[in-house]
């Protein structure tokens, strides 16, 4: 005698499906990082584009002055990682919606490479930053550098 499964029984028992649900974590990441990015990016825009003389205040000395503080170092490195992964995952979603086969694979590879390279480049830029490079034009250096003429 054959038996029939109860209605709505999953094809594979739920308890046996122990693989990580990456799509679920990606979905959750977009929301969690999104909330943090609203704070980080609005703060970034407010300080760099709204306060003071806005975009016209931004130069090497301005960046060096900000990165002299661990507060802005952590702020910017968090923004870098969260935004690039958020953006890369968003691009992945869109590519998966519209592309198929080989073009899809190529575009996914390009997005992944761009995100990975820029995370490494951006992090190195911040970690290895020298606010007072030797031999630089003294008028371009922040005022706290010994060689500065400001």
């Amino acid at each position: 005698m054959t038996t029939i499964d109860a209605p709505r029984t999953p094809h594979t028992p739920v308890t046996k499906n122990r693989r990580v649900n990456w799509e679920k974590w990606g979905w959750l990441y977009m929301r969690a990082s999104g909330i943090l990015l609203v704070v980080l990016i609005f703060g970034h825009l407010f300080v760099n584009l709204f306060l003071g003389t806005g975009v016209k205040q931004v130069d090497f000395a301005f960046v060096a002055g900000k990165w002299a503080s661990p507060f802005w170092q952590v702020w910017d490195v968090l923004m870098l990682w969260l935004a690039l992964i958020h953006g890369g995952n968003g691009m992945r979603t869109i590519i998966n919606d519209y592309a198929h086969g080989r073009p899809r694979q190529v575009m996914l590879g390009l997005v992944f490479a761009a995100v990975a390279i820029l995370i490494v480049l951006g992090t190195l830029t911040l970690v290895a930053f020298d606010p007072c490079p030797t031999g630089a034009d003294p008028s371009l250096l922040p005022s706290f550098c010994p060689a500065s003429s400001k």
Binding site: A61, L118, G122, T125, A128, F129, D130, A136, D137
Partner: peptide, 11 residues
């Protein structure tokens, strides 16, 4: 990110 990375090149 690319334009900001120029701080490592020179002021």
């Amino acid at each position: 990110v690319l334009d900001t990375a120029l701080v490592r090149l020179s002021p």
